[in-house]
């Protein structure tokens, strides 16, 4: 278990000091995949580096299974770091070494025989799906393959924790997906605790169990991924959600006064957001039948997070004023987040 208690990091700069991380409290359970999401400059990279002390917190405690590692000697910190693997956005492979040399790098000085070393590196490469590429140089590999080598290297010393610093941000969508699947697999197979930081909602949705949203150095929301994104409390959380939903597109249409959104009298635009894990797919037809309201779907976005659908619809509702009001009341009753985005009902 990793616990951050009141961690702060202040950088002294020429133009005064910068508070990169502000009073962060986090608990990361053993064996889970924990995501930290935030826009660039939110301090997530600095926070991640506080976990293996590549950045020393200015104040606060970093507990690894109840040991405050900020109190350890330099030699002990190095020993702790061998229990924590790390991978990076730019892979950071040693260009002068082969794949074998890179993966064997952390194993040097452990008194392993040449055969044992070979066997171990072979095992690790098989684990990441790169068997037989021992003699290639990093420059001969694709981005995804480089990240696989980096993962094998990070796992060489059999760590319990893997820190991922924007590990998929330099990769294309398919490769991102493949690497995330690999991380998921390693998490399950090895019981590896994974802490990742990202600015991509996709990454959080695909593999994380818990998420913390960072803004301006502070963690503003945290919890189970589904709960956090089903009911975002902060604008920053909502904006991450909108990045992958079509809300941003809707907002743009609204700003551009698109003809699609020119309502006839009596119509209104509703946004429906699924908040609980009971989203029923027959919602639209049920409403039409029961209340006699026509619902015209103009945007829709439903994603599976874990086993639950998350997302929503934007619809133009047309019908009697009372019918629409009843509709809204019903939706609120079944815990569907409903919001009137544009209203032409009273504009007679």
């Amino acid at each position: 278990m990793i616990r951050l208690e009141d961690v702060c990091k202040v950088f002294a700069g020429a133009q005064g000091s910068v508070e990169a991380v502000k009073h962060v409290h986090l608990t990361i359970e053993t064996g889970e995949i924990f995501g930290i999401i935030g826009f660039s400059g939110a301090g997530k990279s600095t926070l991640l580096r506080c976990i293996n002390l590549l950045e020393r917190p200015t104040s606060g405690r970093v507990l690894l299974d109840d040991t405050d590692i900020t109190q350890l000697s330099e030699a002990d910190v190095r020993a702790v770091r061998r229990r924590i693997g790390m991978i990076f956005q730019q892979f950071n492979l040693f260009a002068s070494r082969t794949v074998f040399g890179n993966v064997a790098f952390p194993l040097a000085g452990r008194g392993l025989s040449r055969e044992k070393l070979k066997a171990r590196v072979g095992e690790l490469l098989e684990l990441v799906g790169l068997s037989g590429r021992e003699d290639s140089y990093p420059s001969q590999l694709s981005g995804g393959q480089k990240q696989r080598v980096a993962i094998a290297r990070a796992l060489a010393s059999e760590p319990e924790i893997l820190l991922c610093d924007e590990a998929t941000s330099a990769l294309d969508p398919q490769t991102t997906h493949a690497i995330l699947q690999l991380l998921r697999e390693l998490n399950r197979k090895l019981g590896l605790t994974i802490v990742l930081i990202t600015h991509e909602m996709q990454v959080i949705k695909e593999i994380c169990d818990h998420v913390a949203v960072m803004e301006d150095g502070a963690v503003v929301e945290q919890g189970e991924v589904f709960s956090v994104f089903a009911a975002p409390r902060r604008p920053v959380t909502r904006s991450f959600l909108e990045m992958t939903s079509h809300m941003a597109g809707f907002r743009r249409l609204l700003e551009e006064k698109s003809p699609v959104l020119q309502l006839r009298p009596g119509q209104c635009i509703l946004s429906l957001r699924y908040l609980e894990r009971n989203a029923c797919s027959a919602l639209v037809s049920y409403l039409s039948r029961t209340y006699g309201v026509d619902l015209n779907i103009i945007f829709g976005n439903i994603e599976m997070i874990g086993d639950h659908p998350l997302g929503g619809l934007i619809v133009i509702a047309e019908g009697g004023e009372k019918a629409i009001a009843d509709c809204i009341a019903y939706l609120q009753n079944i815990h569907v987040g409903v919001e009137v985005l544009l209203d032409a009902r009273t504009a007679h």
Binding site: L54, R78, R81, R82, M86, N92, F105, S157
Partner: peptide
């Protein structure tokens, strides 16, 4: 690249290790 130094540090390398196995070698 400072990223390589950081990677070596994250693997628990000491300073001499980093000078010889990262800086000089690379």
């Amino acid at each position: 690249n400072s990223g390589l130094v950081e990677a070596a540090q994250s693997m628990g390398c000491g300073r001499l290790d980093i000078i010889f196995r990262v800086y000089l070698r690379e």
